[in-house]
Write a protein that binds this DNA or RNA. Sequence first.
DNA 1: CTGTTAGCGCATTCAG
DNA 2: CTGAATGCGCTAACAG
Lengths: 326, 326
Amino acid sequence: MNIYDIAREANVSIATVSRVLNDSAKVRDITRQKVEAVLKKYNYIPSAIARGMVTNSLKTIGIVTIDIRNLYYANVAHSIEQSLSALEFNTILCNTGYDNEQKLKYLRMLVEKKVDSIILVGSPFKDPVLDKPIEQISKDIPIIIINGLYEHPNIYSVRCDDKKALETSVEYLVSKGRKNFLYLYDAETFSANQKLLGFKNAVSRFNVNSEIFLVKPGLEPAYSKVKELLDSGFDFDAVVTSEDLTAIGALKCLIANNIRVPEDVSVIGFNNSVLSVCCTPALSTIDSRMEELGRIAVKVLHKVLKGEKAENDTIIDAELILRETT
Amino acid sequence: MNIYDIAREANVSIATVSRVLNDSAKVRDITRQKVEAVLKKYNYIPSAIARGMVTNSLKTIGIVTIDIRNLYYANVAHSIEQSLSALEFNTILCNTGYDNEQKLKYLRMLVEKKVDSIILVGSPFKDPVLDKPIEQISKDIPIIIINGLYEHPNIYSVRCDDKKALETSVEYLVSKGRKNFLYLYDAETFSANQKLLGFKNAVSRFNVNSEIFLVKPGLEPAYSKVKELLDSGFDFDAVVTSEDLTAIGALKCLIANNIRVPEDVSVIGFNNSVLSVCCTPALSTIDSRMEELGRIAVKVLHKVLKGEKAENDTIIDAELILRETT
DNA sequence: CTGTTAGCGCATTCAG
DNA sequence: CTGAATGCGCTAACAG
């Protein structure tokens, strides 16, 4: 069933059917009703593909993440999908993992499917290997990168001020009398580097001691690292991390070793995920405002799609959430 | 740029270009190389829309969930997306929330976009209001429902044996000497009913006491409920829930009230999400094998799409994961 | 093995 | 306000 069938039954031309389907132009009321009756009778749904053939758009956006099981990505993706849906856009979800080959494969798929734009979630997408292809794509469609910085025409950055966030954390802990910091981070992306930079800035500014370690993502690696540090007699009274899960690993190790939190050691995580309220004591953390980032990304995109001028780099502030580990 | 441009530059017909693009038929090696050279020169990517116009498929599947921020949905969705991607299919993600209007809107969008199939994740999609539209859609494309039962041609169920899982939990706790059970559940869907049924079966079979309460989803409502029960002097030595987060709410309340877990009270959650290892003590829980469900769903779908006969209702067993709360 | 041709279902001129 | 005609880029017969 297509508009020809509808047109025939309604005794009008396909152009008229198309018009009422999109109410794109004036159609006499009586004609419209005639057509609508037939449309309803068959519960007719037009083909977005055929429309896309003409308009060269499926009203679909690709959203590219590392792994949607990660709460951070899930939250941003959800926010994006919802904002987009309100604008009548659909979302193609891509979980690329960390492998660049996979990322390229997905990017290609999205181009094939003629998405109206691609939203890259997370800084792992700012990578030398990907730069060329991404810039190539940006010649045809706008690209938004969340929590990555990409200075290139038609590529828009929307991010949270990670650097400042870490500075704020350290500052707060210093104000509480903490003097010996441990920083655990689990990635070496743009965003991770910003956090690290913020941490380093702050400890040097406040002139406190600090040790920094890169650990594998997850709870276990952080647990082991802290255990190792404890065993080696390393002394610290504050743990700051780049991820909630890492913080929780550290926290669990401290508790297991009868170190009181927050009396002896303070802990601050990052992201304000559900995880942070599940542990005991509940984790103080930094809210990186994932939903807000998603919303802004779509807002920027919408502007660009409408041909309006949009901010090339939007930065919002994170927020320190104090719970029981500080 | 389209296949005409490629054809012209390679001095062949568009049919030949199409053939090498899909390697659908024998093409002389020398011709193929000629074409491929031009293809590479322009880094040509064919339009899936135009192809879809002819084949009536975009090699895209709709996956419909309540909310991807929920770890359960995120895990299943991830598994589906990955399995699908390996089959060269893309995934349109839909977060419908609980509102039926929204669900219908998404369903319509997916039909418009001519998806090859729709995968419904979670039992909230087995609802009288949705039955008609879903059955209508199933006339054109296969539908898979994960953790819901839908007996209808071209609709396939893939689910975890929730009933048995709950029976196993209770049985285990009884074997540990527990006699007074509290069951907290947070939804009234098909899946939730199965769990409830399993719980009831088991407590009656083992002849132990039980109280059952419906609470709102989340950590807080469970916490409050348990607090209320404790204050009222209600006596219990085992808490079983339909969700990890609910279990954690209960657990936190017990701990806060100096009730020892698992010495005084045992707790078992459901889903084996990351949350279960974040709390202290770590939560014993039921692994509902979300990744496996996603994988099987895609396997079933793939069969159907290839025109092979597939199982209408696939059931797998959950697994009891013992950690520190039992 | 390769080329010609006819649609796929729709939006969009351009006439009337 | 409405209709006829055109083409979007590709696949799939069908010829040769």
